[in-house]
């Protein structure tokens, strides 16, 4: 059961009409390390993870949907007033041919999202290590997107999303420490 708040987690402002940036941003929408993959990965793994860290996966998985919504808003704003000609010039001609301006779950190269991107191994350590890796990969993707984007308002929102990847990664690392059950114990070697 979820409760929906009809607002974005962080404001999304777009200062320039730039459909090509939308083409790159879609990587975080339907790409292998995108927000959809993250949300579905965590909200699925949580059924077979020890009780102590179920809540963490629920909370982070839920937040990923809030991030997905921010990315969707960016893509929508960047493309909504683009002409078919502008879409073509931005490299979005093949997208336009299939989807018009509609969003779809695919990566920056148009490869559709697949469950093969995510894993649920049933082994808590294996799953949490995958989650840490996923957060670091998403963080890196945000870095490269900021490198390529000249839109200061978009970059501000992307910087926020990258910061959340950092926090999530740390929380997953803490979950591993909790499951190791050595936290706060005196260490003898």
């Amino acid at each position: 059961m979820w409760i929906y708040e009809k607002k974005l987690q962080y404001p999304v402002k777009v200062s320039q009409c730039n459909p090509m940036l939308a083409k790159f941003l879609v990587e975080q929408y339907g790409g292998a390390d995108g927000e959809l993959a993250a949300a579905l990965r965590y909200l699925n793994q949580r059924y077979t993870i020890p009780d102590k860290v179920i809540g963490l996966l629920t909370d982070i998985g839920t937040e990923e949907f809030a991030h997905l919504e921010m990315i969707a808003t960016m893509i929508y704003k960047l493309t909504k007033d683009a002409t078919p000609e502008q879409m073509k010039q931005a490299g979005l001609g093949d997208h336009y041919a299939v989807h018009d301006k509609a969003l779809h779950y695919h990566d920056a190269s148009g490869v559709p999202w697949t469950a093969a991107y995510i894993q649920a191994k049933g082994d808590p350590i294996a799953d949490l290590y995958e989650d840490i890796a996923a957060e670091e990969k998403a963080r890196a993707t945000y870095q490269w997107l900021i490198d390529m984007s000249d839109d200061p308002d978009i970059n501000d929102s992307l910087r926020f999303l990258r910061e959340r990847e950092i926090v999530h990664s740390l929380r997953f690392r803490e979950a591993v420490e909790i499951l190791k059950e050595e936290q706060g114990k005196k260490q003898f070697y």
């Binding site: 962080y10 945000y142 870095q143 900021i146 490198d147 200061p152 970059n155 501000d156 910087r159 926020f160 999303l161 990258r162 910061e163 959340r164 950092i166 926090v167 740390l170």
Partner: peptide
């Protein structure tokens, strides 16, 4: 904290492109 994306300054690490030196100052 709501603007930074974290409650703790120790975790706050905004990314600025190393290819765009001006960006950090502008911001």
């Amino acid at each position: 904290a709501l603007c930074a994306g974290t409650l703790w300054p120790a975790l706050y690490d905004p990314y600025y492109s190393p290819y765009k030196k001006h960006e950090r100052q502008d911001d």
